[in-house]
């Protein structure tokens, strides 16, 4: 067990370094001169040259990456061209908002998705099951930003129950988190259902029933615990999807999170911020995915050697 976790944790930095190389290389394909871009169009040729040397852009790409890498290790991801703040400062002020949104969406997806999947499995092929599955497949096929806009149109514009956009209070959080939760909710419900159906066929569930335990007790005590294992995987691996989905949802609601920072920096061609934000987001996803694997291995030792 310890060795498995150690190996997982050892590979983690390697993946993040590889990801950072990929991002770094892609960013170098920007058409035009990055020093000119950063100095601004009215800068003198000498000014651009000074900046080029200061940023190390006159050196070869390996030296450039090495400087970026050393900086990143010390928490320096460069400075925003647009705002003048450091990229780390920019990201740090946005994290709480994106966390709020993703955690709320996670909670909604699990609290509604797991029970409805379980109920669908227990009453398999009944009308409840069909209803849950129809909702699940529609939820998985709908773009979250569209649900967001339609919700906004109904609850904010027509009924005036909720604020149009912005962040800060609970009422601001409701629409964005529900819209963002829709996709993962659908997936969690489907996964819980099929996993529960699988477990209900197992011998120990039949044995428990044969021993005379009530249906409710068997399902909650014996089946549920084992059925939740694949659900953990789905939930953990959905974190990346949630962060990605947050980009569009944050844009709809002018929600001041990481996703909106990324889109704004693309709009202003603020390359240090694009580079830093993407690196930060992907690293977070890679770390959460590895932690999911580890939790999964702890819960179910059979999965350890996958």
């Amino acid at each position: 067990m310890g060795r498995y976790i150690a190996r997982k944790l050892a590979v983690l930095p390697l993946i993040i370094v590889a990801v950072s190389i990929l991002i770094f290389v892609v960013i170098r394909f920007i058409p035009g001169d990055p020093a000119r871009l950063m100095a601004g169009m009215d800068a003198t040729a000498e000014g651009v040259e000074v900046l080029r040397r200061k940023l190390g852009l006159d050196q070869n790409i390996i030296v450039q990456y090495w400087r970026f890498f050393l900086g990143a290790l010390q928490g320096d991801l460069g400075t925003s061209i647009n705002s003048g703040y450091t990229v780390v400062q920019e990201i740090a002020t946005r994290i709480p908002y994106t966390l709020q949104l993703t955690i709320a969406a996670f909670a909604i997806a699990i609290m509604i998705g797991v029970p409805s999947g379980i109920i669908a499995a227990v009453y398999a092929n009944s009308w409840i099951d069909q209803l849950v599955m129809v909702f699940a497949i529609i939820g998985a096929s709908t773009p979250s930003f569209w649900i967001a806009l339609m919700g906004m149109s109904l609850f904010s514009v027509k009924l005036r129950w909720l604020p149009l956009f912005g962040a800060g209070t609970w009422s601001h959080l409701i629409l964005p988190s529900v819209a963002l939760a829709m996709g993962p909710l659908a997936l969690v419900a489907r996964m819980s259902r099929s996993s529960m159906l699988e477990v209900m066929k197992e011998d120990y569930v039949r044995t428990a029933r044969a021993k005379g335990l009530t249906k409710f007790r068997v399902y909650t005590k014996h089946a549920l615990k084992n059925a939740l294992v694949p659900v953990i995987t789905v939930v953990g691996l959905q974190f990346g999807g949630l962060l990605a989905g947050a980009v569009a949802t944050e844009t709809v609601f002018s929600w001041p999170g990481i996703g909106r920072l990324l889109i704004d920096s693309v709009r202003y061609r603020d390359y240090p911020v694009i580079q830093g934000t993407v690196l930060f987001t992907v690293s977070a996803v890679v770390i959460v995915n590895s932690l999911t694997d580890i939790v999964l291995a702890m819960v179910n030792p059979r999965m350890r050697f996958d």
Binding site: V19, L22, V26, G241, V247, L262, V266, I274, V285
Partner: peptide, 17 residues
């Protein structure tokens, strides 16, 4: 490594360039 990226994030990075 490519798979480690959430799809939309990688797409935004590529389109931004």
């Amino acid at each position: 490594i490519v798979y480690a990226f959430p799809g939309i994030i990688l797409a935004i990075l590529i389109v931004s360039v």
